[in-house]
Structures are given as structure tokens and as C-alpha cells.
Design a protein around this nucleic acid. Structure first.
Length: 381
DNA sequence: ATGTTC
């Protein structure tokens, strides 16, 4: 038998950061292992919200060398979470009134070029979607502070227990999808040599989409704040779908995040389902074991189809527009309401506990939903 | 996830 060496050992390290209590679907693990066998792959990490995706798993981070993989980033390049401190007291919240009126559908009427420029982004031809949350698991949510666990960090962020917050989950809409399609048409799920012209071209468009998505979250926030008659200050904004270079010891590693929040960009919010707490956490430790990444949410437990089938038997659509927190959900797409219902997701407290136990984060505060905006009916457009 | 299913 040959002595193992770096030359003969090509498989990446596979690591799943989840306690036995955190249920992870077998298919997600198989997908993680398949990604680990791709050329150049060094490390494949599943976070506790790991679940199956289209070919590659979601809730995962991958480090490669020499090759990068647009397919692993997926179509929603730049997707992420932004948190705003709202200049309004929680006791002044008018959730029911806001739920009846708030409307973020349709193109935003204003100077989109100026909004993009503010965020270092430029026009792409997809500006009709700028300022819209999109579909799937995207949302804009007004939240209140449930409990402060680390007052020092909470106050250092300029936050106040009695004030509302706004969390926006959205991405690059049709732009990222178009960028991935260009790649997939030619290479399918195959990667690109990192030093190739095609890789440079992809990364240029990718970086543009990351900035565009950040601008999009800011405009969604502005529209939502206008809708509730408030102003806000952005506290944080992190991307969980991207590929970025990491320079270590003269080598360049490519860090792919697919539904994985950054460990190395300060505090992040890890949202639960739309009927659960969200966690404001501070990354701690070294981040090495988790590829400098964190869980990005609760993680889907049931497929969209399974959620529709199971939950339509148990709940009326009307009942799902209110939550156990007495918060309101604006979701006039009936199927989406069932697909995104809380039972379709894993328990967020377990996911966050796993991150705490792994020495990756400290909980700063928990945030409870007041009003979740998913979508108004298309008929109103 | 998606100017989706003109």
C-alpha cells in the first residue's frame, strides 16, 4: 500500500457541523460528499441548516484551489440578509394596519442608477426588479427585540431594546440567474480554471451581482420603511451566496458559500422560519473548522411540495397569516404561504445551539416577528 | 432562486 501523500490524496475534507439532535437529510450529505470529489476541492463543510438543493446542498461552504464552481454559488448570486435599526418604538407598531397597506410589488419609481451608484453597483438591465423582495424564502420583516443576551455588543451596534428592527432577505433577482445561465449553457455544473479568462469574466459579473443585491436589499428596506412611515439605519448586511478569493500562505483558495453566512464580517442575523425567532449572533473563535462560514437560517425540513400537501390538511390559509408571536404575514400567494409555513423548517434554536456548541458564535439577542412581508397578490400589480 | 407558465 502506498504511503498517503498530498499528491495521491485528492478528496476534500468533509465536515458537518451539527449535533445528533439536528436532523440532516441523507440526500444533503450525499450531495456534500459529491461536491467534495470535484477537482480542486479541499474542504466541504455542512452547517447545521444543511439541506438538499438542486445538485449541490444548501447550508454549505466549499473551499477549492485552482478551480471555481459557479454552479455551487447557484442562481441567486449575492443573496443575503440586511438588518436595519428602525426609528420607531415597538409599542408604536401598527402591525395590522401595516399588513393591510404595505405593498412592495411592481417596479420602484425613482432613480435606480443613483441607488446602485450608492452601493458601488451599476445598471444591468434588471432594474425593474430593484427594490422587490422576489419569491421563495425571501422576505422583509419588521421585528421587535425579544431578549438581549449580550448587552455590550447589542449597545455597541447602536441598538435599543425598545426599538423596532427591519430584516430584509433578498438577492440579485433575474440578474444572478442570467449570469449563472450563461455559465451553465456552456459548462453545466462543471467548474472553471481559476486563472482562465472565463473565470475572470464570471467573477466580474458575480461581483457586480453581489453589489446589486446589496443595493436591492437597501431599496427594499427603504420602500418598507416608507410604507410604515419610519426611517432606518443599516446595522449589517451580509451575503450568503457567493464565491470569494482567500489568500493564505501565498496560495489562493476559492471560498464558495451556498446558503452560508460569513463568519468573518462581524455580527450576522440567522433567521428562523417566519413564525420563529431570529438570532443576532457575534462570530467567535477562529472560523477555520467551518470554512469561515455560519448557518444562514433554519434550513428547510420539508420540500415545497411536501409542505403544501401536509399543511393544507392541517391549516387554513387564513390561520397562517398570523403566528404564535401574534405577528402578521402578508402572503397573498396561497401556495407560497404553505410552502413557507413554520413547520416546513427546522427549529432555529437547535441550529443556533449547534453553532454555539461548535464555538462559532455567541448570541447577542433574539428578535421576534411583528410583520412579515412576502408578497401581495399579482392581481394588484 | 427565476421578466416562471408568451
Amino acid at each position: 500500500m502506498n504511503t498517503p501523500s498530498s499528491e495521491t490524496s485528492t478528496a476534500a475534507t468533509v465536515r458537518i457541523i451539527a449535533s445528533p439532535q439536528s436532523w440532516v437529510e441523507g440526500e444533503a450529505v450525499r450531495q456534500l460528499e459529491a461536491v467534495a470529489r470535484l477537482p480542486g476541492m479541499r474542504l466541504a463543510v455542512g452547517l447545521p441548516d444543511l439541506h438538499p438543493g438542486k445538485g449541490a446542498p444548501v447550508g454549505a461552504a466549499f473551499e477549492s484551489e485552482g478551480f471555481l464552481y459557479p454552479y455551487l454559488v447557484g442562481s441567486d448570486i449575492g443573496c443575503g440578509m440586511g438588518l436595519w435599526d428602525v426609528d420607531l418604538l415597538t409599542r408604536k407598531a401598527k402591525a395590522e394596519r401595516w399588513a393591510a397597506k404595505l405593498d412592495l410589488e411592481g417596479p420602484w419609481v425613482g432613480d435606480t442608477d443613483a441607488v446602485l451608484a450608492e452601493h458601488g453597483a451599476s445598471s444591468t438591465g434588471f432594474e425593474a426588479a430593484l427594490g422587490t423582495v422576489g419569491g421563495g424564502n425571501h422576505f422583509a420583516e419588521v421585528q421587535r427585540v425579544e431578549e438581549v443576551h449580550d448587552a455590550r455588543v447589542f449597545e455597541a451596534l447602536g441598538l435599543r431594546e425598545e426599538r423596532l428592527l427591519l430584516l430584509v432577505h433578498s438577492g440579485s433577482r433575474g440578474l444572478g440567474e442570467a449570469i449563472l445561465r450563461t455559465h451553465v449553457d456552456r459548462h453545466a455544473a462543471g467548474g472553471l480554471a481559476a486563472d482562465s479568462e472565463e473565470a475572470r469574466a464570471y467573477l466580474t459579473r458575480h461581483d457586480g451581482a453581489v453589489l446589486w443585491a446589496k443595493a436591492n436589499r437597501a431599496l427594499v428596506a427603504q420602500r418598507a420603511l416608507d410604507g410604515i412611515g419610519a426611517t432606518g439605519r443599516r446595522v449589517l448586511d451580509v451575503c450568503h451566496n457567493s464565491v470569494t478569493p482567500r489568500h493564505e500562505g501565498g496560495r489562493v483558495g476559492w471560498l464558495h458559500r451556498k446558503g452560508a453566512a460569513p463568519w468573518d464580517e462581524g455580527p450576522v442575523v440567522i433567521p428562523g422560519s417566519r413564525g420563529a425567532l431570529s438570532y443576532l449572533v457575534l462570530p467567535v473563535g477562529t472560523g477555520e473548522q467551518s470554512a469561515h462560514s455560519l448557518a444562514h437560517g433554519a434550513g428547510r425540513k420539508w420540500t415545497r411540495t411536501a409542505a403544501r400537501e401536509r399543511l393544507k390538511e392541517r391549516f387554513t390559509a387564513e390561520s397562517l397569516t398570523r403566528t404564535s408571536f401574534k405577528s402578521h404575514v402578508v402572503c397573498e400567494d396561497r401556495d407560497l404561504l404553505f410552502e413557507e409555513a413554520p413547520p416546513a423548517y427546522k427549529a432555529i434554536d437547535r441550529v443556533v445551539t449547534d453553532l454555539v456548541d461548535a464555538g462559532l458564535v455567541r448570541v447577542v439577542a433574539t428578535l421576534a416577528p411583528v410583520l412579515t412581508y412576502k408578497t401581495r397578490s399579482r392581481a394588484s400589480e
